[in-house]
Write a protein that binds this DNA or RNA. Structure first.
Lengths: 139, 139
DNA sequence: TCCATATTTGTAATAATTACAATTTTATAA
DNA sequence: TTATAAAATTGTAATTATTACAAATATGGA
């Protein structure tokens, strides 16, 4: 469970000082696995922290990503989305409703040609298309 | 070869009327497989077409993508890149030098869980890391 | 040639992100 | 406890990619 205590510990483990803002931002991302954009996070948290600045959200997310606590998902052309899931998985975005779905894939089975000697630090597997629900609505 | 005649034909096949601007923009992307951004394309072509407008470049690339002639690559956080290659391949971006490298992968061999009933129209497999050259320079 | 339509152009607007300086908070040592 | 330095947060202004839109230009058919 992601209790406040656990979040504090997790931040500390990643060399991030656990301020209220940081705890709340991480809590939101880890409890809402909807790959939120900066603005979504900001709009939700301003309700709890009325003095919150959007710059803080930007700074904090950058810090989290640098410290390898979260990852950014650039599946949306207009804004960066964030994800607290750290295991290897891809993202499907529905071009009708805009919803993002996670999918699992087996990275080891992919035969990648042309990447010998390349050091991999991050991977994004993004697929676009139409989700089952929107497909049904179209009929 | 991508002669002007071939480009004209290719545009026509994709239901795109071959204007000078369109031909030149497609020629640039297909001859320079560097995944150029809008600005790069514009800066190069303004030399040949002094009246060229950046809006035209934007409009044209959007049209090309809609007509399935090229694909967009959202590997760069700040700007959209474009690619004339249509076969399945992924992109590796070096976080040191910013260069983008193509790699091949076998999509059919990937075991994807959670995408039954999803209609796939586009896929982007992006990997970030350090290229061999930059790795050597760091030592 | 004339006219309708498509394309291109230029400018202004929009929106995500960053820069930066001021303010506030936190941690520490006297 | 108090003074002080460092870190974090905030708010505003600047930057930049992209889009909206209307005017100008080019194209093709009657």
């Amino acid at each position: 469970m992601d209790t406040i205590q656990n979040i504090t510990l997790k931040l500390t483990e990643h060399n991030i000082k656990p301020s209220l803002q940081r705890i709340k931002i991480y809590e939101y991302i880890s409890k809402n696995l909807i790959h939120p954009a900066v603005d979504t996070i900001y709009e939700e948290l301003i309700k709890e922290i009325p003095t919150l600045s959007k710059t803080t959200v930007y700074n904090t997310l950058k810090l989290f990503e640098k410290q390898n606590l979260i990852r950014s998902v650039n599946i949306d052309e207009t804004e960066i989305r964030y994800d607290a899931r750290k295991d290897t998985h891809g993202h499907f975005i529905c071009t009708e409703c805009g919803k993002i779905f996670d999918f699992n894939y087996n990275y080891n089975k992919i035969k990648i040609n042309g990447l010998k000697e390349f050091e991999i630090t991050q991977q994004n597997f993004n697929i676009k298309g139409i989700c089952p629900e929107c497909k049904n609505n179209k009929k």
